[in-house]
Design a protein around this nucleic acid. Structure first.
Length: 742
DNA sequence: CTGGGGATGGGGCCC
DNA sequence: GGGGCCCCATCCCCA
């Protein structure tokens, strides 16, 4: 809570200006402190994340703010917030530290100077973020007031010159939003977490400063890749980043979010106010992710030491995964630097070099962004995601919308909150506590991320990782061999060979329709891309790690979707109630609540459901004594090729098998002289059994034929087929027309 | 207290 | 890359 401003006492006082000859007309009355008070309140809300409706991503630092305020301050931001809830600012134009100052200016009208600026940017004292950088950013963001202020201050200091003369030298101008290299001592995350000068942690008074610098106390409105992990560990308790406004952005710094290293002397780009940094204005398109995902690699690797390591920039943001140039050589070769690390809690690896040089955890925090691979001699600082902990995303910040900002500590700004900073959750040890005692974690400090095994030395870990490599290669080799074999056998074109189906593929209809078969399992697909996608599910490691929490996924889309949950991005809003969703499909589902539409009907009890999944859940209840029971009984008959025994889910994989089940069921009944209605009922149950609509579809026609063969009455047959078709059809019923018998 | 339904979030996976 | 759907888990409400 910013309290350094005493509340204006003149808010309700009649202004002098309105005191004109006793004139008391309302239209001349004015509360001179009103605007200031309003701004104060807005800034307070921002610091709490309250009612913030836009996230600004700068590199890998996240800021929350209010659209209205941004729009009122910057024409450029205005143009962005209209369409997006997530703004992704070009980090070539504005660095997180600089944007922090800019945002502070927007909300306070003040531009921190000198030590304040350094503090806000978490850079060393005396190495203030250059005013030129702020000026450049202000220009880029089209904030004329700030531009003017910067120019004024520069002139006052006799430093004002055109930005072209800037350079990035330490302490000098670092135009285009970048602090001088020397200032890039930390990742933006760390910078953002630390709004105090490097060195000793900020004094406790920093929580409730009394000076004007409080105006820039905005850390709470920023979202950090912090959490129980290292970044959070590095958030000084005094500057805790509340999980309320930070969601739980996780356990490790984004490895892939640093900007590419710009070689020294590289041409400085002029401000490009006309180049929208964020996604286009497509309303309700899922917003782009600010954090570039890592390249798809079987193992997540650290950057090779490629470019000359900058001890400060390092691999950059949050642990480094610069999307910069891929190191030469095979991306998957044994020379890979796989992610490995010493055990997280101590962050002790950190101390190997930096830790010895820098005393306090806070300093190490600031250095957190150092490129782990930049010091090949020492243990890389790849960060394994800490163990998942309950509530990582279920905390108060995860729910997203309006009422997520009500934590007592956050509301009150209490500094007594014993919870760890930066989204540390209860029950999860603050890594700070383990600082200085890494030996307590045993000798196996080098941990293989994929399998979690620990090793006492990097050499042993590397040897172990080699084994993973061989496994991967063996796996790929099988897949490739399968491709070649499939091509040679005429099962289909080789991958990338155009994608035309081969009509003459041997085997049944399934193979004709899905000629691309997985070598590791028997699944087959219509096209090679899908097969490749599927094959990733067999990979030892998942190629797409979340740059925030490190969780890995087999598909990039799943990872990006997952990241939206970190960022609290819910682009799909319900027009009726305002509820927001991360996925379009969820909104579609939700809208049925308002429309009352319940297209999913239970064929057993007639219950109707708005959501298919709830029908499925409901059907499972029936299945306990229904179709599953029948299937179980049928399984006892044996001799049904392709029909797996009931697995509790009652899910069958092969249409032929399903049909066989149905047919056999009917025959059994028929042979037992039971009535046709009972046979029909069992057939219906069999179709219920088909959880996979496609399977049901493929089974429907033969089922229909057989139903007719049974000699069922037209009504009964129609009922059976209707039931089956209903299950087979999607909610729109489009498949019924194609498959209903005539 | 328990079971069932409504509703939602997240991940997997196919198209 | 995005859309769509399935599955699982969870929470909440209610009978």
């Amino acid at each position: 809570m910013c309290t350094h401003y005493s509340l204006p006492t003149d808010v309700h006082r009649m202004p002098e200006s309105g005191d004109c000859a006793g004139q008391t007309m309302l239209d001349t009355m004015e509360a001179p402190g009103h605007s200031r008070q309003l701004l104060l309140q807005l800034n307070n809300q921002r610091t709490k994340g309250f009612l913030c409706d836009v996230i600004i991503v700068v590199q890998n630092a996240l800021f929350r703010a209010h659209k209205n305020v941004l729009a009122a301050s910057s024409a450029y931001l205005k143009s962005l917030v209209v369409h997006d809830n997530l703004l992704n600012l070009d980090h070539d134009m504005v660095s997180p530290a600089v944007f922090r100052l800019v945002l502070d200016f927007i909300y306070t009208g003040r531009l921190a100077d000198g030590a304040e600026a350094a503090a806000a940017a978490a850079v060393a004292p005396g190495a203030e973020p250059s005013l030129g950088a702020v000026l450049a950013a202000a220009s880029y963001l089209q904030i004329p007031d700030l531009v003017a202020l910067c120019k004024k201050r520069l002139k006052r200091h006799g430093k004002y010159c055109h930005l072209r003369g800037g350079g990035g030298g330490g302490g000098g101008y670092a135009p285009y939003g970048r602090p001088g290299r020397g200032l890039r001592a930390a990742t933006p995350v760390i910078q953002a977490c630390y709004s105090s000068p490097a060195g000793p942690p900020p004094p406790p008074t920093a929580e409730a400063p009394s000076g004007p610098e409080a105006a820039v106390n905005t850390h709470c409105a920023e979202l950090y890749a912090s959490g129980p992990g290292p970044a959070a560990a590095l958030c000084a308790p005094e500057r805790r980043c509340s999980p309320l406004c930070g969601l739980d952005l996780s356990k490790k710094s984004p490895p892939g979010s640093a900007p590419p290293e710009r070689p020294p002397g590289e041409r400085e780009l002029p401000p490009r106010p006309d180049s929208p940094p964020s996604a286009g204005p497509a309303a309700y398109k899922e917003p782009p992710l600010a954090l570039p995902p890592l390249p798809p690699l079987p193992f997540q690797k650290l950057e090779e030491a490629g470019p000359p390591p900058d001890p400060f920039r390092g691999g950059g943001g949050g642990g480094g995964g610069s999307p910069g140039p891929e190191p030469p050589g095979r991306p998957d070769g044994p020379s890979l630097l796989y992610r490995w690390m010493k055990h997280e809690p101590g962050l002790g690896s950190y101390g190997d070099e930096l830790g010895r040089e820098r005393g306090s955890p806070s300093e190490r925090c600031e250095e957190r962004g150092g490129d782990p691979a930049a010091s090949p001699g020492g243990p890389p600082l790849g960060l394994a995601p800490p163990p998942r902990y309950p509530g990582s995303l279920d905390g108060p910040g995860a729910g997203g919308d309006g009422d997520d900002y009500k934590s007592s500590s956050e509301e009150t700004g209490s500094s007594e909150d014993p919870s760890p900073p930066g989204g540390h959750l209860e029950g999860y040890p603050c890594p700070h506590l383990a600082y200085g005692e890494p030996e307590s974690f045993g000798d196996n400090l080098y941990v293989c991320i994929p399998c979690g095994k620990g090793f006492p030395s990097s050499e042993q870990l590397n040897a172990h990782v080699e084994a993973h490599v061989e496994e991967e290669e063996a796996l790929y080799g099988r897949a490739e061999a399968a491709e070649v074999a499939a091509g040679a056998a005429g099962l289909g074109p080789p991958f990338g060979g155009g994608g035309d189906k081969v009509a003459g593929a041997p085997g049944g209809l399934g193979e004709l329709l899905r000629p691309y078969r997985c070598a590791s399992c028997d699944k087959s697909y219509k096209d090679p891309a899908t097969l490749r996608q599927h094959e990733k599910t067999h990979w030892l490691t998942r190629p797409y790690p979340c740059t925030i929490c490190g969780k890995k996924f087999t598909q990039r889309g799943t990872m990006t979707r997952h990241m939206r949950s970190h960022l609290g991005l819910k682009p799909f809003a319900c027009d009726a109630c305002g509820m927001r969703f991360t996925r379009q499909y969820r909104l579609t589902e939700h809208m049925r609540i308002h429309s009352g539409e319940k297209p999913y009907e239970c064929q057993v009890c007639g219950g109707k459901f708005a959501q298919q999944r709830n029908l499925i859940s409901h059907m499972k209840m029936h299945a306990v004594g229904g179709a599953a029971g029948a299937a179980g009984a049928l399984a006892g008959l044996g001799g049904l090729p392709g029909v797996p025994g009931p697995d509790g889910k009652g899910k069958l994989d092969f249409p032929e098998g399903v049909f066989a089940v149905a047919r056999l069921t009917a025959e059994q009944l028929s042979l037992k002289q039971q009535d046709k209605a009972a046979a029909a009922e069992l057939l219906a149950q069999t179709t219920h059994f088909l959880h996979d609509p496609k399977v049901a579809l493929e089974s429907l026609y033969p089922l229909a034929k057989f139903t007719a063969e049974l000699g069922l009455s037209p009504d009964k047959a129609a009922e059976v087929l209707s039931q089956g078709a209903h299950l087979a059809a999607g909610p729109d019923g489009r498949t019924i027309d194609r498959f209903s018998p005539t």
